[in-house]
Design a protein around this nucleic acid. Structure first.
Lengths: 209, 209
DNA sequence: GCGGAAGCAATATGGTCATATGATATCGGG
DNA sequence: CCCGATATCATATGACCATATTGCTTCCGC
């Protein structure tokens, strides 16, 4: 086997370049040539690693969403470990704030999500990627609500799925508003905190369950 | 002055064709030729009415958003007129449900909004259209919250702007979820009702103010 | 009733992009 | 130490699209 190269690493590198471009010039502005230039490679090499634009798109979207989803999950579970005095609502807030475009890095990620989610409206394979990621993250938030119920921080009669969907909807919508109005024109984090607080109403049992 | 034509009507007709295409084939799939075919006219005529693609884009977006904004405003104010026994929360819900892609017509409108909002991320003139429409609709919802405070349906210490932003964020996010998961996979309207109910908590003064 | 400006359509053009093709460089194994 | 498979690149090609150009049609104002 001659001349090895790390395919996964290469694909990821190309996907990153693609995402950076997506955030700066938009979906219609991205071309193979620009991706190649941004990644510091040739156009032909991209073809070598992706069968076509569709495949690159799918991979880049999956790459972006799985990275984000993983970060949210990590924040949730590590927050879960140190659960001693930290309210579940607080852990949830810290995780979901990851989705708001409040700094440059998050804004890039938001734009990537937005571009590809919109594309997913007309591309079933992209839609499936989005659907899977949405299901995962909904599962995480849902788990947190259930956890809150166990700890007495959430009223036991709330439907965890619907509560989670409501919170997630708020985050997504807030992200759009921040992107549109600018992050300094209203306290998005406060709105999110309030939305979470309408589910996590009780103080919890300080003695543990 | 020879051979008159209703410019506004023509432009609207073209914008409608553009929007229908946007919803079905996506932003990248729309071309002048397809718009012309969809509108039943020639490519040249589109050029006659729009200086270029940018102008058509801007007009179509403005057309879509102003139509929607107007419908929301109309529902709000007519609901306001019959305010006798109808709670403000109910009027607000009926208006905002307009934004959810729960039937074919609303789904088209949602897709148009989504496509053009995403495009607005990289086009300042589109962004301005979006910003204006966002400001208007936020104003309407905000007014409803203030009205709710006057009628005793909302706790007087809530910030109308933040409450309105929270409700709007929920609607937008729910629209995305419905578009992704399908309208039959969860009760989006119930989640929206709950979100509104967390602001409109009080029952109101049945005797009027 | 007719001259001409505006409505409208068909086609030409120049550029851009995804993809194809062919050449070159690099390196593991025998 | 050299063969061949893989990695990488440079360029060609064919399609498509926005826009420009050209010419025909319609009907208002005089």
């Amino acid at each position: 086997m001659p001349r090895v190269a790390d395919h996964d690493q290469r694909r990821h590198q190309i996907a990153l370049a693609f995402q950076r471009l997506l955030a700066t010039v938009g979906f219609t502005g991205v071309t193979f040539a620009k991706v190649a230039a941004e990644a510091g490679i040739s156009v032909g090499l991209i073809q070598h690693y992706f069968s076509g634009k569709d495949a690159l798109l799918r991979f880049a979207y999956d790459d972006a969403l799985s990275g984000l989803s993983e970060r949210v999950r990590a924040k949730l579970t590590t927050g879960d470990d140190t659960q001693g005095g930290v309210p579940t609502a607080r852990v949830l807030f810290d995780s979901l704030a990851e989705l708001l475009p409040l700094d440059a890095e998050r804004e890039v990620e938001y734009r990537v999500r937005q571009c590809l989610q919109t594309q997913a409206l007309h591309d079933t394979s992209l839609a499936e990627v989005a659907w899977r990621a949405g299901r995962d993250i909904l599962g995480y938030v849902c788990g947190m609500v259930e956890h809150g119920i166990e700890r007495g921080e959430v009223e036991p009669d709330v439907d965890p799925v619907l509560a989670a969907r409501g919170i997630l909807a708020t985050v997504q919508g807030l992200a759009d508003q921040v992107a549109l109005s600018g992050k300094d024109n209203f306290p998005a984090e406060e709105v999110l905190r309030t939305a979470i607080a309408t589910v996590f109403t009780a103080l919890g049992d300080p003695s543990g369950h």
